[in-house]
Design a protein around this nucleic acid. Structure first.
Length: 152
DNA sequence: GCCAACGTTGGC
DNA sequence: GCCAACGTTGGC
């Protein structure tokens, strides 16, 4: 089983949205980065665990845990001309963009802020914390996962 | 294939 | 809103 960290802007989609939606399961759509797409396609597996991270907001940080519940499949928002993430170059017969379904598992009582994560020395090598890391899905090692859960 | 210009991410 | 650090585009 692999572990991940997945970013979302809470103004777009936050942990409460996932917690309150039917079946607590949603497609993680809108990924428009090839590296992240390849990660979803090649490395993500059903049963993987992921931290839900709020980015580009007042208090960035990890807010909970979810589970990957599908393999990668075509992101339908790429085919929708009125959608924010529409991509005319994504051909339904040969989809350029993919997504996975995620299911809510847990919401932390208190957000683990980016600042707090940075102060934890055992997380120094975490991908999220590396300078210039803009990938919206990054791997989390078993050790890092454990350290983060223990912070809560 | 190079690289300048441009667009995006995301913390602050 | 600023800006660093990317990624993408397109002319050559």
């Amino acid at each position: 089983m692999q572990r991940w960290l997945m970013k979302s802007e809470p103004s777009d989609f936050c942990i409460d949205d996932l917690m309150k939606c039917p079946k607590q399961t949603e497609p993680w759509d809108g990924i428009r980065n090839y590296q992240v797409r390849n990660t979803m396609r090649d490395d993500m597996k059903i049963g993987d665990q992921a931290f839900f991270y709020h980015s580009s907001c007042k208090e960035p940080g990890i807010v909970g845990i979810m589970e990957i519940v599908s393999q990668a499949y075509a992101d339908p928002t790429a085919f929708d001309p009125v959608h924010k993430h529409f991509d005319p170059k994504s051909d339904p017969d040969n989809p350029r963009w993919l997504l996975v379904d995620v299911r809510f598992k847990e919401k932390f009582e208190k957000i683990l802020t980016l600042t707090e994560l940075r102060t934890n020395k055992s997380l120094a090598a975490m991908r999220l914390l590396q300078r210039g890391c803009r990938l919206s899905i990054t791997p989390v090692s078993q050790r890092e996962w454990k350290a983060i859960v223990q912070m809560g």
